[in-house]
């Protein structure tokens, strides 16, 4: 199966990259755009089935290595096959 982890800065935490990108978007004339946040995506292959145990294992991987709970949130999606 294929796992996609989406990491984003917490809404309460300043995001300087997001602010810079938003400024660039607005300078291109897209004045209706706001609230830009820049995160990252980590994808990997994983053996096994989508079970509560597998999800707990992915949580352990996300919480500390792939994301820092002090400043970031994460969510993940699992694609079979």
């Amino acid at each position: 199966m294929k796992v996609s982890v989406f990491v984003s800065p917490k809404t309460t935490v300043l995001d300087p990259q997001g602010a810079a990108v938003e400024q660039a978007i607005k300078s291109l004339g897209h004045l209706s755009v706001g609230g830009v946040r820049v995160g990252k995506t980590v994808t990997f292959e994983m053996e096994g089935e989508d079970t509560p145990e597998t999800r707990a294992q992915i949580d352990r991987l996300c919480d500390g290595l792939l994301s820092n709970p002090v400043i970031e949130d994460y969510r993940f999606e699992i694609e079979a096959g």
Binding site: V13, P16, Q17, V70, I71
Partner: peptide
């Protein structure tokens, strides 16, 4: 405690 993120000036 805490974390260090990108400088606000980029």
């Amino acid at each position: 405690p805490g974390a260090l993120i990108r400088n606000d000036c980029i």
